[in-house]
Computed example of a mutant assay.
Amino acid sequence: MYEMIINVDRMEDDAPAIGLGLAVAARQRAFVTGVHIVQQFPSVAAVPEALAIMEAEEESARRRDAWWRGLCDRAGVAGAWEVLRGLYVPVLAARSRMADLMVSPLPHGYADLPIGFDHVTRTLFAGGVPTLLVPERSEVAQAPQRVLVAWNGTGESTEAVRAALPLLREAGVVHLLDGRRSSLPDFGPPPLPLGDWLARQGVSVQRWHSFDPGGDAGAALLAEAEAMQADLLVMGAWGRSRLSELVLGGTTHHVLTNARLPVLVAH
């Protein structure tokens, strides 16, 4: 069975990540687990007041089981509710590895930490599964129908495409930007047969074209997504280190900081 988890920080019916995650789960006939992390801080582990606050948060979250099951029932999916306490990143990364896809709010909508150093993208970098990141301002509430795939031949971008296959098969329109760079003959890796592979996987690409945006790939990707009225962007993440992307700028950093549409990323 296809397994999904939805990282539930904001336990409210109108949270965009919850709505889109349940819509995707219904389309894929997936089992979907809502996961809420009660973050534990080692520096205050011996402070009675801090422990009492964490225990109260955990107890309150556990009482939301009926709420979550009600959401799943209305979406027509089977699901479960889990509350986990511990260090946010390793706990969420470990739990996500038991799923085929994780859905999570895109952090820039509410987090104090910049993209690349927030809990969610650190979880992805720590070995978590491919993640569908949903901006808080996203209005996409149904399984994506117009998908833009950004692929450049890297392992990260290929993994993102592989993770997106169930969504690509169901999409009505798929456009692919091929950002592979040419290499010297006999020195670079052979071209990957992406087109044949996608066709065997039941994915039809309506528009496939080369993509050479120059120095601002992130802005160019978002412009392409807006031009095709995409409701999902699929891409690999962190082509270089998170620190260099934060300091020097980079495609992942720009996209995740400015995206208004959901982004499926893999590392």
Rank of each mutant, 00 (worst) to 15 (best):
Ala56Ser: 13
Ala219Leu: 13
Glu245Gly: 08
Gln142Thr: 14
Ala223Arg: 11
Leu165Ala: 11
Trp208Lys: 03
Glu136Tyr: 07
Ser157Gln: 05
Pro105Trp: 04
Arg260Thr: 13
Ser96Gly: 15
Pro144Val: 03
Leu132Gly: 03
Tyr88Thr: 12
Leu194Glu: 06
Asp118Ala: 05
Asp73Gln: 12
Arg63Glu: 12
Arg260Lys: 12
Met1Leu: 12
Ala219Thr: 15
Gly236Asp: 06
Leu248Gln: 10
Gly236Trp: 01
Arg240Gln: 12
Thr252Gln: 06
Asp178Gln: 09
Leu232His: 03
Phe117Gln: 11
Arg69Phe: 07
Leu106Val: 09
Gly76Gln: 10
Trp238Lys: 03
Asp186Trp: 08
Asp196Met: 07
Val265Phe: 00
Asp212Ile: 00
Thr123Asn: 03
Arg69Met: 15
Ser60Pro: 00
Ile37Glu: 01
Ala66Asn: 10
Glu224Gly: 02
Gly236Phe: 06
Val147Met: 00
Thr158Cys: 13
Leu51Phe: 00
Leu148Trp: 04
His253Glu: 10
Arg260Gly: 11
Ser104Pro: 13
His175Ile: 00
Gln201Asn: 15
Leu246Gln: 10
Arg97Thr: 14
Glu245Trp: 01
Val174Ile: 13
Gly250Tyr: 02
Ala111Asp: 14
Gly202Cys: 12
Ser210Thr: 14
Ala111Phe: 06
Glu49Thr: 09
Asp118Lys: 04
Leu71Tyr: 05
Met54Lys: 03
Ser241Asp: 08
Arg146Val: 05
Pro130Met: 02
Gln206Ala: 15
Asp118Asn: 09
Gly172Cys: 09
Ala111Lys: 05
Ala61Gly: 11
Ala52Lys: 12
Pro130Trp: 00
Ala46Trp: 10
Asp118Ser: 05
Thr131Ile: 11
Glu226Trp: 03
His36Gly: 06
His119Glu: 14
Pro144Asp: 00
Glu82His: 13
Arg260Asn: 10
Gln201Tyr: 07
Asp196Ser: 14
Asn258His: 15
Arg146Met: 06
Glu49Cys: 00
Gly218Trp: 04
